[in-house]
């Protein structure tokens, strides 16, 4: 870093995040001041501050790519918003809002709960900003559309996620409070990850030549999963995680699969779609419906 600090002494510290002392004569100080003023005036300081905060909040693996993406998105939406041209149509405006909300929602993984919750809050504000004629607030129609978009972009098969959407959707004209919105978003993202993991699991069970899995094995895995999930109904929070973990451990899973193979039931194939649907159904059964 020391070498960086020495770079180009003529250019003074640009923004206020460089607090290291650089040699600065009176003239350099004057240019520094004018440059700082310039940066503040055109909004660079504020823009970088916001970007840096986002980086720290999301802690991406590759912050530079994250920043490129961040500014790209900002550049895309600013001309349409603040341009002097004619105002965009109601429908276009709605699409823009959805896009912006989605972008905020994806900035941080849902396991980074603080960052995710912040982003959900921002997305909620984006969506409930008042249009020209509408009252402020988020209606069920927009909320449902957002849920659909997330599921579609998550590449989960439609029939797999449809039951979830049915459960957590609101009526079109209903106002959606932030709490419901947050829970809905979180559930949706968790389900998508669950389905992705289930897909990976299926790939392990799959016979590469036939591209299908043995029904007996597949069912055994699903039953074990169901057993583990049911365990969480009976015990208190920390204990049930341990219980579920042990039931899903390699030992008990292998045992179940082994037992299934030995059992004298006829073998029949199980497709990926069926497996995913059944696995997702186990998850969705635990989701509390809205209202």
């Amino acid at each position: 870093m020391a070498a960086v600090e020495k770079r180009r002494p003529a250019v003074a510290p640009a923004a206020n995040f460089t607090d290291s002392g650089r040699p600065a004569g009176p003239r350099a100080a004057a240019t520094a001041e004018s440059e700082e003023d310039f940066l503040r005036q055109v909004g660079v300081t504020e823009m970088l501050r916001a970007a840096l905060l986002k980086v720290l909040e999301a802690r991406p693996e590759e912050p530079i790519a994250f920043l490129a993406h961040y500014f790209e998105n900002m550049g895309l939406r600013s001309p349409a918003n603040g341009g002097a041209g004619e105002p965009p149509g109601q429908l276009l405006l709605q699409q823009q809002r959805l896009g912006r909300a989605l972008w905020h929602l994806r900035l941080a993984h849902h396991s980074q709960r603080t960052a995710f919750n912040n982003n959900v809050g921002v997305a909620y504000e984006c969506l409930s900003a008042s249009g020209r004629k509408k009252k402020p607030g988020l209606d069920g129609r927009t909320y449902s559309e957002l849920l659909k978009r997330i599921c579609r972009d998550g590449e989960a098969p439609e029939e797999v996620v449809a039951p979830l959407l049915h459960k957590i959707q609101c009526r079109d004209h209903e106002a959606v409070p932030l709490g419901v919105f947050r829970a809905g978003m979180l559930t949706c993202f968790v389900l998508l990850e669950f389905v992705a993991r289930a897909g990976a699991l299926y790939q392990l069970l799959e016979d590469p030549a036939l591209a299908v899995a043995d029904r007996r094995v597949g069912q055994a895995v699903l039953d074990t999963l169901e057993g583990a999930l049911r365990a969480s109904d009976e015990a208190a929070a920390p204990a049930c995680f341990l219980e579920a973990g042990s039931r899903l451990g390699p030992d008990s899973l292998a045992l179940a699969m082994d037992r299934a193979l030995v059992a004298r039931r006829p073998s029949s194939p199980m497709t990926r779609e069926e497996f995913l649907e059944k696995a997702a159904a186990l998850f969705i059964a635990k989701v509390k419906p809205v209202g």
């Binding site: 870093m1 770079r7 250019v11 640009a14 923004a15 995040f17 940066l39 530079i64 920043l67």
Partner: peptide, 17 residues
């Protein structure tokens, strides 16, 4: 610091100026 974020941000500002 580990990912040199500030190095690049600072340089971006210099380039911008």
């Amino acid at each position: 610091a580990q990912r040199h974020v500030l190095t690049y941000m600072e340089d971006a500002v210099c380039q911008l100026l």
